[in-house]
Each structure stands twice: as C-alpha cells, then as structure tokens.
Design a protein around this nucleic acid. Structure first.
Lengths: 233, 233
DNA sequence: AAGTGGTCTAGACCACCTA
DNA sequence: AGGTGGTCTAGACCACTTT
C-alpha cells in the first residue's frame, strides 16, 4: 500500500508541524518524484488527507495545510474553521493552567469542578489577530499535568488522545455577534466588531465530557466547512 | 465528467429496478467496454455508488446491488438554522420562476443552464425581516413545472422528493459578512449590516446536483446548530 | 508562458474467489 | 485455470492560476 504509506508520511509531517498550517505542500509531481511513485498514487493519498480535513486542494495552485493542531480530526462531521486559501497563521498560547469553574461543571453535569484551560490566539502573517479560542478539558489523569508538562506535540488533540479522551459525539453552535470588551482587547479590535462565534462540546463514547471549545473567528479570514454523507473508510 | 455520467446511469438502473437488490453488476471490464471508457473511470463511478450504499463490492466476486427500494434518508446532520427562543416567523415567497444561470451551471459542472429559483424572506412577529434564502434546483422533470403549479405542500424539500431528487450528501459553508446593497434593500437593513451567511450544496446518491441554498441570517435571531457522531462512523 | 491540479487512458501485476 | 476486483504506472490533455 504505497498510498497509505504516503498518506501516513504526509499526515505525520503535518501533525508534527513540519508543514505548518497554511503552508503549501510540494506539487503533486514533486511528491511523486520524492516518494518514487506515480502521480496518481500521490493523488489518492492526498484525497485521504483532504477527507480528514488536513489539507485543502485548489486547482491551479496546490494543496494547503488546514490543520491547526487544535481540532480533532476523528469526528469527520465537525464543522471546521478553514483559513481561506494560503493564509499563514501562527498560534500563541495565552494561558495553559488548571482552573476551577463551577458554572461550567454545572452546565456539563459534572461534579468535578476542576478543568484545564487552554486559551490561544492566532495571528496572520502580518501579525493581525484573527481568532481567539478557549478550550476546556477535564483535569483528569495525565491531562492534569499538562500545565506543567506542556502539550503532546504542542497539540491539544494529541494530548487528549494520549490521555485516552477520544471524542465520538458532540454538538456545535455557530453564530455571529459583536466582540465583548475583554475579548476585543485580546484581539486588538474595536469592541463591537462582528466576529463568527463557535461553541463546541465533545463527549467520548461513554458519554463523559471530553472537550469544550469556544472560538471567536475573524469572518474575513475564516469560514466553517461542513461535509455530509460522504464520509467513509 | 464521464465518471458522473456512468454513476448516474448505473444509479438510474438500480433505483428503477433494472438491477434488482442482491443482483451482481457486470464486471468492471465489461462495464468499461459497454460505456466505452477505461476501467479506471468505471471504478471511480462505482466508488460513488458504494459511498451512497447502492452497491457492495467484493474482491474476486463483483459488485452487488444493496438497494431495497427505500428512499434515501435526508442527511440529518445538516447544520440547521434555529430561531432563538421560539420566535414566530412568517415566510414570504419573493419569487418562484425558471431562470437561466450559466455561472451556476459552470460552478456545479452542469451542462444544463436552466434552474428553478425560489427566493424567500422570513419576518418575525413584529414584521422585521430576519432572513433571506435563495434556493436553486434543477429544472428537470416535474420540477420544471413548479413555477406554474406551486410547491408540493408548500415545501421545497417535499417538492424535490416528489421529483425523485433525494439529497444524500453535500457540503455547507458558514461565514459572516456585510450585506450587499441589493440584499440590504430586500431585508430592509442598512447596507453593510453584518449577517450570518450559509451556502449549502446537496447532491443525490449518484452525485448529480439536487439543490443549492444560500441564506443570509440575522445573527440576533439565528444560530446554526450541529449534532453528530451519535449513531454512525 | 509556465506551473498546477482534474481527469482519463491503456496496460500491467497482484490477491482473491469459484470452478 | 480463469475471472474478478485492488493497486500502481506513465503518459496525455484540459482548465485554472500566476508571472
């Protein structure tokens, strides 16, 4: 299975950060030469990556990496925020710490009020802040040590996976509205600027809480993409 | 697109009963000869049918029909626009007519440039316009008469179903942005007002176009809700 | 004009299944 | 053994994007 080897190799390169989010992959012919296969085989491998929402291929240009190390790729029907073609972004961790949040615990129906909070800001190449994401995951097991140890591969999804929290179901709400005063400061925008807003709650197969992510997204840089009825493999 | 023509032809043969449930399709090489294409193209078409659960391919044997005549289920995982807090709305048809749209045909990869256009405006109880929806469906078969006859049950999806166009897969993009001048007039808002925007393209099992809907939604009245992972994958 | 992805072709070899 | 699907190849032509 050369196709799988190539897909696996490219997936690794993307999730490990060798190909950054927004970057352009080498041309298909170049990949074919590099892997010593035909272009058709490269294309079949790239189809797999596209299905997993790791890349976004555009005619006449190439394949852009659309993986920010944040979202789970497993539930393929997640609405994913896609950077418009070829915008390079960098991610900055605003905070990573253990918190207590009784409101969130009540909302999720949890008795445990301890969580790990991870807040991140994304900037485009020009340094303009384009998104603000707040993740909350349970402070159980190995995750409890994340603030001290850092994230696995710098990726929240990898850290969750390493902790055995594999999301299998969830809900997402997408809306739009004006930025609040505090968020506006973080994003360096005028208060009241309209942003896309997404709230996502994921649970594992046994129904326990896996992750809650709320995001503010600059509508000029992001749109949310959904795919239905075509997931297989 | 030979692939799509072949998929469409085979889908028709299956749903019309020419290939009964459980029957074995002709061999790929035989189909290739019959359609006068290469085997690779036949295989890509069969992949589409398999993805739509119309056939089941087994190594060394062939492709069995797995379609029992039941209608395809609607893709239940569409992102649905939900009115906040039980706001009652009324829907007004702005237009329902046959149109020619070469750009849309090109975008969808269709040679037929005829479509049925249905534009609708929704107002809340106070009479404020809260959403604008433009639907485009193919002007094939019974649908071609919709402008004269009206919609089945006043519902576009019911009309589509009655015409044999059952969506089984698709994509949706959600973004946000300022209203254009023309849309602002229709919605009775100031140009540049920020609205949620959704574009949805649905296709039938054989990959042919079923419906395209673009919507502008007042972010104060609507949010989009997604639910997934509960029963499949 | 040059580079890129999108599609199709004709052929090849393999693993699998039924005889 | 002979037919079937699974995979890969090397090349071709086209439409699109950028220079």
């Amino acid at each position: 299975m050369k196709r799988q080897q190539i897909a696996s190799s490219l997936t690794d390169a993307i999730t490990s950060g060798r190909y950054q989010n927004g970057a352009l992959l080498p041309a298909e012919q170049e990949l074919a030469t590099r892997f010593d296969v035909s272009r058709g085989t490269v294309r079949r491998a790239l189809e797999d990556l596209a299905r997993a929402d790791l890349i976004n291929t555009r005619t006449g240009i190439g394949s852009f990496v659309t993986y920010d190390g944040q979202t789970f790729s497993d539930p393929s029907s997640w609405g994913r925020a896609l950077a418009e073609g070829g915008v390079e972004t960098t991610t900055h961790v605003l905070r990573l710490e253990r918190i207590t949040d009784a409101d969130l615990a009540a909302e999720l129906g949890r008795s445990d009020t301890d969580f790990i909070a991870l807040d991140r800001l994304r900037r485009d190449a020009a340094g303009v802040a384009v998104s603000l994401e707040r993740s909350r995951v349970p402070a159980d097991g190995r995750l409890a040590e994340a603030p001290g140890r850092g994230l696995v591969d710098d990726s929240l999804s990898a850290t969750l996976r390493a902790s055995g929290l594999v999301p299998s179901a969830g809900e997402q709400w997408i809306s739009a509205g004006p930025l609040g005063a505090a968020d506006a400061v973080l994003l360096d925008r005028a208060p009241g600027t309209f942003f896309l807003h997404s709230t996502r709650v994921a649970r594992t197969a046994d129904g326990s809480f896996a992750e809650k992510v709320t995001s503010w997204l600059d509508p000029e840089h992001f749109r949310i993409h959904l795919n239905f009825g075509v997931s297989h493999d």
